[in-house]
């Protein structure tokens, strides 16, 4: 890592004009180091997007329109868990299941802040392992908005999608007779013309920013396409290409 950093610095010295590629390389190195502390896979905004989509398609075109995404400003979370309650009441989530959760991390020997809260939910992956595993296409990727949906009447309840999901985002809902998961409140809100999801609306500290990643005017787009602040995704190594991004600040 240090060697790479030195090499990158040499590149900067060689040319007075810092190219975009060099700038990216520098960011990747710096952010990779930060990732050790964050616990997740951390990448620069640009490289994150390059991981999500085939080369060359990042800036030019997103697979979905709108391309629903969420940015979680993890350091703003105070652990009030109103998002969880809002999700439960909006989507009739039973007491034995959950669609979103706020995890708590405690590092007693850390300097300064001793802990943090990490909200999790379905990552609406672009390469969803659950969709690949389902034998009867009961779960599928919506071709328009990219949300991983459920067609309850098809679900056979084999639970392979639960095992396949790297994000623990699924559970079997007895009342529905099918697997249940976060659909970005599509059934309860978005399909009725509302623009935001329940967990984002209720959040008092603006942790969850929901929006359209393909719209340059959208706040999500702006948060993801900046280079100043690190952005990361969870479980990058599974190559699921998630659409839930994490950042601080």
């Amino acid at each position: 890592m240090i060697k790479k950093l030195l090499e990158a610095e040499n590149l900067f010295k060689k040319s007075e004009k810092i190219s975009e590629m060099d700038r990216r390389e520098f960011l990747k190195i710096g952010l990779a180091v930060t990732g050790v502390f964050a616990g997740g896979s951390i990448v620069s905004a640009v490289s994150a997007a390059e991981k999500m989509f085939p080369p060359g398609t990042y800036v030019e075109k997103y697979p979905y329109k709108p391309h629903y995404s969420m940015v979680i400003r993890v350091d703003q979370c105070i652990g009030c868990r109103r998002c969880m309650n809002a999700c439960v009441s909006t989507n009739s989530v039973p007491d034995y299941g959950w669609r979103t959760r706020v995890l708590e991390k405690e590092v007693s020997d850390a300097i300064g802040q001793k802990g943090e809260f990490i909200p999790i939910l379905c990552n609406q992956c672009n390469n969803p392992p659950c969709v690949r595993a389902c034998p009867v296409t009961a779960t599928y990727k919506d071709k328009q908005n990219g949300i991983v949906m459920m067609n309850n009447k098809k679900c056979i309840g084999c639970k392979i999608c639960i095992a396949a999901c790297p994000y623990d985002a699924r559970y079997y809902n007895e009342e529905k007779g099918a697997i249940d998961k976060c659909d970005f409140c599509f059934e309860s809100k978005l399909s009725h013309g509302e623009k935001n999801v329940a967990c984002s609306v209720i959040c008092p500290t603006d942790v969850r920013v929901f929006g359209d990643l393909s719209n340059p005017q959208d706040r999500v787009y702006k948060l993801i396409h900046q280079l100043q602040k690190p952005v990361w995704v969870l479980k990058k190594e599974t190559d699921a290409k998630p659409n839930i991004f994490y950042m601080k600040g």
Binding site: R132, P135, V136, C155, G157
Partner: peptide, 27 residues
């Protein structure tokens, strides 16, 4: 007796197959 909805399997294995699914191929 493990599947939650075994009767749906008999229908949707045929009318809604997922060729990338190992479970579909298994059946």
């Amino acid at each position: 007796l493990e599947l939650e909805n075994p009767f749906r399997l008999a229908i949707y294995m045929f009318v809604s197959p997922n060729f990338s699914s190992n479970i579909w191929w298994m059946g």
